Amino acid sequence: MLALSFVTGTEPGKWFERFRERTTHGELLATGSDDPLTELLDARATLTLLRLPEARLTDELRRDLHVVTLYSETPGIALPKDSELTLLDRLTPADIDGEIIHYDGTDATAVRDALPVVAANVGVVIAPRPLLKVLSRKQIEHREYDSPDHRPTEIALVWRRADDSEAIQDFVGIAKGRTVNSSRQAAPKRSAREKALAKQARRGDAPPKRAGRGGGRRRR
């Protein structure tokens, strides 16, 4: 069984469906978490979907882990629904000068705790936009936040090197966009005769007969 913990703000459901449809590795146990790294380190998960940067993911710890980056997230800002700032599609630090910033970071639990205050029409929260999208309530809107101090975050699959398996590699391949017809290994090169036989098989032709060593005897 493959146990996967995915960080809040990611929506990997389509990968789960493809893994179950395309492989025969058995059950996939997938759970959302505000802190999937702890579940990996505690061996409650064999594979995790993390948000980077992650301060606890030190160089020393990385030596025991595989880390495969999948995609980037745009920085975002959560605003009260009635705020005039919602008239803008993208905000900058100058736009929120004087606003109370209740939280600025990537911790899902902290974002979850700060958003109710924004919903009460007070201040803003700065966090990865996909995370804000998942956690925002009806009284909150979110916009892209363009600031030189806020780089895009990254979503990565992380697992222990000691736990590496065909099941994990197949899931990683699906997450990276591998199709049902693709393979992790390059197809072996075929000889000219093998290519000709394959072409004839596709057309339904019979394979060519090979002449005998001495040739046939002519009839008079």
Rank of each mutant, 00 (worst) to 15 (best):
T24G: 08
K14F: 15
F19E: 00
G212H: 11
G26D: 08
K176V: 05
V68D: 06
S33Y: 09
D82N: 15
T23P: 00
L50S: 10
I174N: 07
G98P: 02
E17P: 01
D35R: 09
I174H: 03
L85H: 04
D97H: 14
R22M: 12
T23K: 02
L157M: 08
R217P: 03
D97G: 13
E154A: 12
I155R: 07
T31D: 10
V7A: 10
R44F: 12
R219Y: 04
D95S: 13
R190E: 09
T179H: 14
A186W: 07
E27F: 07
R22C: 06
T153G: 15
T24I: 05
A108Y: 08
V117A: 01
D149L: 09
R190Y: 06
S191D: 01
I174Q: 03
R44E: 15
R217W: 05
T48Q: 06
A78D: 07
E17S: 13
S5P: 12
D170K: 07
A55L: 07
T92C: 06
P75L: 06
Q139P: 11
P188W: 04
D170V: 01
L85T: 07
T74I: 11
V67R: 05
L61I: 02
L41F: 06
M1A: 15
R44Q: 15
A198E: 11
